[in-house]
Nucleic acid binder design. Structure first.
Lengths: 339, 339
DNA sequence: TTGTAAGCGTTATCAG
DNA sequence: CTGATAACGCTTACAA
């Protein structure tokens, strides 16, 4: 059942039927409902390829992920993806996922744009300086950044308040009497890691505590690395009394490190982490329950997709910028500093 | 630069240029190379939408994932996806990801087929009885299953030797003197879980050991659930001396449970698990290193995509069936049963 | 308010 | 071996 047949069936022209279905104003209400009902009854579905060819719009958005960059292969990305996919499915927009080798990344964006394969992009894990943002701005193609960047361009974004989250978490620890606080952070080039460090430093400064660079670690966010780096920090002669981790997985490694050293979490060493709300690794079920700053990454994906669709529909990037607040949840993994 | 322009530029007809580029045999070698070079030089890229419209083929494959089925939100799925995406990118085939609510799942497949949106599907995590397989067979649309199923249909698949893997792992434990072996398995309705249990039971039977149903647990494969179920098993009056886990994450939980009970892993209790080769949770870096059966799921994704492309190109499902062997890696988490 | 007809950029058919 | 020409199914000026 295509447009031609449907039109013939109704004794109307293709034009009118097309207009009726696509909500053009010049169609009379009577014919519109008549057309709608027939389309429904006959299960008419417009051919996507034909529409693409005629309009130049693809009804598709893309996420490009460098298959070698381990960063995007962490579990957060999947949950984020699920959120994005949910929103796009709601609007019947296609989501295409494209792997790319490291050095071809920008070229992959360029090609997809040049070949008119997509209407827009979702760009995740922005770097402090991010070439992708510059490129997509230059190409003048709709995109939304999951996070922010220093790269100058009028881009739309959805970020969480990383700086505020880590400022509050650090302040909480300071209020509990902690002075030597280790920071297990993500990789240095990532914008969110920089923001989190800034929050941490701001809180220390506000309380007149001199930061110790030796207490700050930047690395990938895996359990193993959390274990290794927490072990190193806790083995220092003046060991930190609290650890602030950029992910639950890192904190999980820190738990293991503390246990190895015979330290009781929440007593000998306090641990707090940022929680992206992963379904299969819950902070509240760890032992002891892990205090966290929390902002579900999946909901972020959903919202981000909404912003992208708005961007594609012509809204200017300036109107599509959001910073989601972050909650702080107190749990048994943090305690008052013993003197 | 489109076909018309390219043809004009070369002084040839569109037909000839199209044929030359698409490898039709009736074109002379001379013109073919001439056309190829010009296309390369002028950066001609065929318009995907136009091609779709003309051929009816979409150059797209889909993976549908029920966003509420926690199963597909585990980290294995992402790694699998990465493998699939790599192969498809190599062949410039689009991968579209579609979320669906639980009860709409079959309808989503149906719609995508009816609307000619995709050339084929990748179906993961098959159930012992799987309606998706029956539906796609009935619709006569190319698809490849990641795993197998009891559902009768001539489907293509890539599976790993789950039965063999768990038979060997169990036998290894038996050879080390273990008689009470707990099985932390995936959900009961999953085909791979059934196969793994079959391997476990076969090994016990081969050694004349009566299986204890109380030692077999079916549940989701998270750390927390591994912890909980391992705790329960190890708290039994006649506690198992070894645990066989369906994933590293489950084993990780089991490690935690054992530690809680003051049991030394590899001595008081042996643990072995299946390892899908996740990049951020490595069996060899656990403490103690975790013995595993291993079959990288990412490579599986890559291979599966190859099979799907072959299926789309007309190969019959019977020729596209593979069972990948599984390696067994001995590490310190298993030891001889102390008497 | 509705219709006619010309695209959109390919591939497929048929003829030469 | 090459070329006209007609699809493919939709949208969109332009006309009525």
């Amino acid at each position: 059942m295509n447009l031609k047949e449907l039109a013939a069936h109704l004794g109307l022209s293709q034009t009118t039927v097309s207009r009726a279905l696509n909500g053009y104003p010049e169609v009379s209400e009577a014919t519109r409902t008549r057309v709608r009902e027939a389309a429904e009854r006959l299960e008419y579905r417009p051919n996507a390829a034909a529409r693409r060819l005629a309009t130049g719009r693809t009804g598709t958005v893309a996420i490009i992920f460098p298959s070698e960059r381990s960063l995007l292969l962490d579990p957060h990305f999947l949950d984020f993806l699920a959120g994005v996919a949910e929103k796009l499915a709601d609007d019947d927009v296609e989501l295409t996922l494209r792997a790319t080798r490291r050095n071809d990344e920008l070229e992959t964006y360029r090609r997809l744009v040049r070949n008119r394969r997509v209407d827009g992009f979702i760009v995740s894990s922005p770097l402090i300086e991010d070439e992708r943002v510059r490129l997509l701005s230059d190409l003048d193609v709709p995109f939304v950044l999951h996070g922010r960047t220093d790269t100058q361009a009028p881009y739309a974004y959805l970020d969480i308040d990383n700086e505020g989250a880590f400022r509050r978490a650090t302040e909480l620890l300071v209020d509990l009497g902690h002075r030597r606080i280790g920071l297990l952070n993500g990789k240095r080039e990532l914008n969110f890691a920089r923001d989190r460090e800034a929050g941490y430093l701001a809180a220390l400064a506000a309380h007149g505590i001199a930061p110790d660079p030796g207490l700050i670690v930047n690395a990938a966010m895996t359990e193993e690395i959390g274990y290794r780096n927490a072990s190193a920090l806790l083995a220092r002669p003046q060991r930190p009394t609290a650890l602030l981790a950029a992910s639950v997985l890192l904190a999980f490694g820190a738990y293991r490190a503390a246990r190895d050293l015979g330290l009781v979490i929440g007593k000998d060493v306090s641990v707090i982490a940022h929680d992206d709300g992963l379904p299969f690794l819950k902070a509240e079920t760890l032992d002891p329950p892990l205090a966290t700053t929390v902002s579900p990454i999946r909901a972020g994906g959903y919202r981000l997709a909404e912003l992208l669709l708005a961007r594609i529909n012509g809204n200017p990037p300036e109107d599509l910028r959001e910073v989601a607040p972050v909650d702080l949840v107190f749990r048994a993994s943090i305690g008052r500093m013993l003197t």
